[in-house]
Computed example of a mutant assay.
Amino acid sequence: MSYRGVPNNGFNGSTAMNQQQSGFDYSAGQSRAFNAVNQNNLSNGNKANYSNNNSGNFMNKIQNGFDQMNEFAEELTDKPIVKRLQPYIPGLARFFIVATFYEDSIRLLTQWSDQVFFLHKWKHYPRWFVIIFLISVTIVMIIGSTLLVLRKQTNYATGALCSCIILQGLVYGLFTGSSFILRNFSVIGGLLIAFSDSIVQNKTTFGMLPELQDKSQKFKGYLLLAGRILIVLMFVGFAFSKSWFTVFLTLGGTVCFAIGYKTKLASLLLGLILVVYNLSLNNYWFHQDSKRDFLRYEFYQNLSIIGGLLLVTNTGAGDYSVDSKKKIY
C-alpha cells in the first residue's frame, strides 16, 4: 500500500508510560511550543500592521493638512471684507492681465526714436514699415486692453492682443529665448481666462434653446483649461531658479492648478509666491536706465499672470477640471 502519513508508534501507550517515568508532560510542552510560534507570528504581524499604520497615518496627516488649507482658502471668500471687495475682483484681475500691454504702449510712445532706430538700423526693416507697425501695435494694444477691462467685444480684444504678442515677438526677434516664449504663453493664458470670464457673465440663449447654452459652457470650459495650462508654463522656468522650498510649493501648485484640483488654494498659493518675488526682485523703481526697463517689463508680465490667477479664484476651474468632476461623481 502507498504511504498514508506518520505511523502511530504507540503514542497513546508507550509515550504516556515514558511521560510518567520521566516526569515530563509532552502534551503541555507541545502546547507551549505551539503558543510560542503563534505568538511570534502575531508579533510579526503586529509589527507589519504598525508599519503600515504609521505610513497610513503620515499620508492621512498630509491629506488632512492639505484639506484644512483648502478649507481656509474656501472660507476666505466668506469673510466680510472679501465679500465687499468681491464685485471688484474680476475688474481688478482683468486690469492686471492687460497692465503689461498698457506699459508696453507707454514705452513705445516715450521711447519712440529708440524703437525706430532699433528696428530700422539693427533689424534692417524699411522705415515706412517700422512707423506703420509701431503705430498700429500701440493703438491696438490700448484699445484692446480697454475693451477687455470693460468686457466689451472681448472676442476681438483677446484676438487682437494675442496677435500683438506674436507679431512683436516675430518683428523684434524675441522667439529665440525660452524665457520669453514661456512667459508670453502665460500672458496669452491670462487673456483666455479673461475671455472665458466674459462668457460666464454673458450667459445668453436664443429662443430658449438649451443646446446653445451647452455649447457655450463647453467652449468656456475649454478656454479655462487652455488658460490654466498656458499660465503654468511660466512657472516651469521660474521654479527651478529659486530655493528648494519654493520649488516644492511651486511644482505642487502648478500641477494642482493645471488639472483643476483644489484650484482656489493653488491659485492663491501661486499668486502669493509670484507677488513676493515680483516685489522683491523686479522692483524697477529702485533702478535706472536699461535695467529699469528690463525689470519693469518683467514686473508687468508677472502682474498679468497674477491677474489670471486672481480671476480663476473668482470664476473657478471650469467644467474640465478635477474639482468639477468630483462634484458630479
Rank of each mutant, 00 (worst) to 15 (best):
N9V: 02
N8V: 04
Q168L: 02
G307P: 15
V200H: 08
W112K: 07
N38H: 13
G169W: 12
A258V: 02
I306F: 00
N278F: 04
L42N: 06
K123D: 12
T176Q: 12
S196D: 00
R151G: 06
S51H: 09
N202Y: 13
W122S: 14
G5K: 08
A194M: 09
Y26M: 10
F129R: 04
N282M: 11
G91M: 02
Q288C: 05
W244S: 07
F245K: 00
N282I: 09
A36T: 15
L167C: 01
K325L: 08
D25T: 11
Q19C: 15
L109H: 06
F129A: 12
T263R: 05
I139P: 14
G271V: 05
S267F: 11
N302T: 08
L270I: 04
F129H: 03
L251C: 14
P87A: 09
L212N: 08
Y277M: 04
F180G: 00
L147R: 12
K83H: 02
F235V: 03
G23A: 13
F294D: 05
S324D: 15
I259C: 15
R296Y: 07
S55F: 00
I193D: 10
V6W: 13
K47L: 09
I231L: 09
K123Q: 12
Q20S: 06
L108N: 04
H124C: 14
S31K: 15
M141D: 06
Y156P: 12
N70T: 13
A226G: 04
I143Q: 10
L76M: 12
Q63N: 10
K203A: 08
G29H: 09
Q288M: 01
S179E: 00
G159F: 00
T254P: 00
F58H: 07
S2F: 10
I131P: 09
L191K: 07
V255S: 08
L109M: 11
S198C: 02
N60H: 11
N60D: 13
M59F: 12
L311V: 06
I62H: 02
T77Q: 03
L225K: 12
L281H: 09
G260W: 01
N40Y: 10
T158P: 14
Q63W: 06
M208G: 11
T204F: 02
Y329T: 03
L119A: 09
V322Y: 15
R32H: 09
V276F: 08
D323L: 10
G207S: 08
L230M: 00
G13F: 00
F206Y: 14
G173V: 02
